[in-house]
Amino acid sequence: MALAKRIIPCLDCDKGRVVKGVNFVDIRDAGDPVEVAKRYCEEGADEITFLDITASHEDRETTVDTVRAIAGQVFIPLTVGGGIRKLEDIRTMLNAGADKVAINTAAVSNPEFVREAAARFGSQCTVVAVDAKQVSSKDESLKWEIFTHGGRNSTGLDAIDWVKRMVDCGAGEILLTSMDRDGTKIGFDLALNKTVSQAVQVPIIASGGVGNLEHLAEGVLVGEADAVLAASIFHFREYSIEEAKKHMASQGIEIRL
């Protein structure tokens, strides 16, 4: 009897459509988010993460409508990220039916925002999304830094120190994306994930780089992740969530089947 490791499909959405991750040059349409979310839920997804990559403010309304539509049909936890900058944004998303919000850039520009969010809405709904890139060279000991804007902007913040600080501010969970691996399909940055997971007490969601089912299992077994997130392998039906779960269970991982 134990807590199950979670599999979380991620929907990157632009103007109301699921697209392949932000770092892909060739953005392919992967369908209607409500239909995709329903399919994942039926296949046994443990949660759904919805990342809004819509650039313009005007299209924000579409996002809220989409979140509302998903929440009306999918009865598993729903996390919404992308453009969460004010307490009002959090309230809007929770009112639309989200259970958690993922805060990324706004945490870097104002760490106190995370404290306010956790104090107002609770740590259970405050996820901090962290984009980390390795900055150490081959002969140095491993070191990662926080980047924003899809990995383009360096912040000078050490990833491990930053995650600890976010947890002190009240983050209830960390969504950890390796910018080196995102979109590569060569697997998670396991060293990054393991280091972060051991540094803090809250659950870690590993993200960035999943290309096959073995990568998901490694994320838990080697990277010590509490949950694994993937997008493209599920969107284009390379694998179903069910297959992913069966594979992880066959590796001795506690899974909700």
């Binding site: 134990a2 807590l3 199950a4 809250v202 509490d226 949950a227």
Partner: peptide
């Protein structure tokens, strides 16, 4: 920690079995 001395994260977050 669990019965195998593995560290358990807090919050208790996710799907657990109910007897």
């Amino acid at each position: 920690i669990d019965e195998n001395s593995q560290r358990l994260k807090v919050p208790h977050m996710g799907w657990n079995e109910v007897r």
